[in-house]
Structure formats: C-alpha cells, structure tokens
Amino acid sequence: MTALVVLQSVVLVVLVVLVSGLLRSHATILRRLHELGAGTEAPPTSRPRPPSQLPGPTAGRPASLPAHDISGLGLDDGAVAVRVVEVEHDTILVFLSSGCSTCGAFWEALGQPDLALPQGTRLVLVTQGPDREHVTLVAELAPTHVPLILSNEAWHDYAVPGSPYVVLVDGPSGRVVGEGTAPTFEQVLSMLGRAVDDAAHRSRLASHRGEKAKADAAREAEIDDALIVAGVRPGDPSLYRSVDQPSAPDEGAPP
C-alpha cells in the first residue's frame, strides 16, 4: 500500500513538472508573439496602395527606382513644374508622342472628362520637348483638364524606352512602383484598378490575421485564469524553469 502511494506521488510530481514546463513554454511563445506585435490592433490602413509591379514591370530594370519631380515647358512656351516626390498622392505619368500610332488611342481616351483613375492618384502627361515634338499637334491632341509637360529631361530621368509608356510613382515614398505599357489607356487603368483591388484584398487578409491574433489573446487570458486558480501567479518561479530542471522537493506534492 505504502509503495503504491509513493508510486502515485512520484507520478504526480512528474506530471506536475511536465504540465508546468508545458505552460511555461506556452507562456514564452505568447510573450514572444506579443513582442513581435501579434495580437495588437493593426493601425488603421490608409487607402490601399498598388503593388510594386504595376502597370507592368519592364524586364531587366530594377524595381522601385527613385522618382523625379518634373519640370519643363507648357504648350504656350511657359514653364511647368510638377511635384511627384514626397507628396500624399500617387502620380500616373503618361509619356506620349504626337506621332506614334498607339499613342492615338491614349490621346483619345485621355480626352474623356471622366477618367476612372484609382482613388488618390493624379494623372500627368509628358511629351518630349519642343525640339523633338510637334508642339502644335500636341496642343491639338492634348486634353485641357490634364496637366501636360514638354520635358526631355523627364524622359531621360525615367529612362522612357518609347511611347506610350506609363510610370506609376508612389508619392509618399517618392519611388517608381510600376511602369510599362499597354495598347490602350483603358487597359492601363484596368491593371491599376486590379492592383488597387489586390491591395484591398491584402488589407482585408491582414485585418483577418488581426482577428486571429485576438483569438490568441482570448486563449491566453483563459490560460492565465486557469493558472491563477491553480495558484500560479505572474512571476511564479515555476513559470520560468525549464523542463529538465529538477523541481523543489515539496513542489507538486499532493496535499
């Protein structure tokens, strides 16, 4: 009988040590997760930002190049300076020519008053300077409601390979986040729209992850309650001992 009681006591001690180790391990995991920011409310996201490869990356060019503010001439031989770096909005730069056949569809589309631009973006048209462009023809083609700049420098700064060419600049970071071309401006807008939708989807996923982290927090609170009921309070040495450390002789002994 005595042997049986002793055996039970030994088994109980072993079990208590194992459970303590398990709880401590769990507490450590939760603490680390909190240190990493999990379980905290995600900061309110501003509008979704398009990802870095739209409207389409150009092969062989590094992603996310620094953008440049644009200055050049207006159609009336005046001066124009447009800020695209360190501004709140994003900028869609459309590099066009008066002569290229594909550009014709762009000029026509850009003449529409209601361009369905992604929210928070600004459209700016850029042609080459008067020495390389038929300015009068550009004046004929250009919509009045969209800023237009004649700037060889901008074409050089953005290494524009030809026209039409579209560059998307992230205003706050001042970096090129997408560039490429498409047969029509509608297709460019469609790609930009999808980019915004994708970004919104990722934002929703992120908030969903936030909910999961809250579930972890609830579980943690539940475990804390159980520990407190069992007499294990915050800072209890048993929470900070590894499994292989021997327990105190009287610890875990049956009452």
């Binding site: 503010d69 207006g74 009336d76 031989d77 005046g78 001066a79 124009v80 447009v82 800020r83 004046a139």
Partner: peptide, 18 residues
C-alpha cells in the same frame, strides 16, 4: 520651396490651335 509646384503660362487659344 520643397513641396511646391507651379506654372508660368499664357492662355492658349484652344480653338485656333485645333
């Protein structure tokens, strides 16, 4: 200054330009 943009222009006769 930083953050500013601008234009110096004269009004075009858009009809005539077309």
């Amino acid at each position: 200054p930083r953050g500013w943009e601008g234009t110096i222009s004269r009004r075009l006769d858009a009809v005539a330009a077309r």
